[in-house]
Design a protein around this nucleic acid. Structure first.
Lengths: 140, 140
DNA sequence: TTGCGTGCAAAGGTTTTGCATGGCA
DNA sequence: TGCCATGCAAAACCTTTGCACGCAA
């Protein structure tokens, strides 16, 4: 679980450079394909291993939405993890779209659950299921 | 995605009968092994397909803990659906306990998500992950 | 020099799919 | 009778692992 990287390698820097400017949610496969397109040949095991390291270090986050779709990663920042913003995820049961949202009011859920129900919510892993705007409007 | 069962088959009944009295969370593999031990020979594809149906029907819930471990299922009950009351579920990531809660304030989440984010929450299927009181107190 | 990081290939395990057969309504 | 459900096997899929080599410190 705690396999923090001790060496600074070219591959790690390349990967980190991509993650920094990568948009929203990215899968390990996305990373591999991007790097390959760039001519950077980094083995997929290295990608997986470095992603795991970065998660351990808190530089990126990992989301597991469901069993069949691949895990998503997201850049959080190198600086200290002040956890200034808590993000939530909504997944559409119909089209499968993953919606990323950050909202103060939703943060209150966390406080409410803790104070009233003594439950310490982990927003990283919690996913709201339902219907997105498009799908809710499309059918019944 | 929406493959609700239309026929009532022996396999479905057998599976449902087991799920009703099955303890806590069960994997698809558990179900297969149990049925085989009972002399009930039900193909694994059938198990997976029926579990998917039952999730769609809201009779069982599906939990995904992480990418590599198999998904867990849990019996929720045949009734409800009347949604006279909206119930929420919290699952402890540590001890696995499933907490059932009904709370007016949490119902507001639904309204909020719909009005502000145009997302139609499905409380039946949404599970809040985190730490229960006991586990949160135990360690850090 | 030491031992971690890398890369390739192959394994691992869960879940899905194709297709012919059997069963419910 | 018309579909749907089933079962088997094989595929698909993501992720991890083994092992030899290269590279950082």
């Amino acid at each position: 679980m705690n396999s923090r990287s001790k060496y600074k390698t070219k591959q790690r820097d390349t990967l980190l450079g991509y993650l920094e400017k990568a948009p929203g949610h990215i899968t390990a496969n996305d990373v591999c394909k991007y790097l390959k397109a760039q001519g950077e040949n980094i083995g997929q095991s290295t990608v997986y291993r470095q992603l795991e390291n970065l998660v351990d270090e808190g530089i990126i986050n990992k989301y597991v939405i469901d069993a069949t779709s691949p895990a998503c990663f997201e850049y959080m920042g190198k600086e200290s993890h002040v956890k200034a913003d808590v993000c939530f995820h909504c997944k559409c049961e119909k089209c499968g779209k993953l919606i990323h949202m950050q909202c103060d009011e939703l943060e209150e859920i966390q406080g409410h659950l803790y104070e009233e129900h003594h439950f310490q919510l982990d927003p990283m892993r919690t996913v709201f299921y339902g219907l997105c705007e498009a799908c809710a409007g499309a059918v019944q």
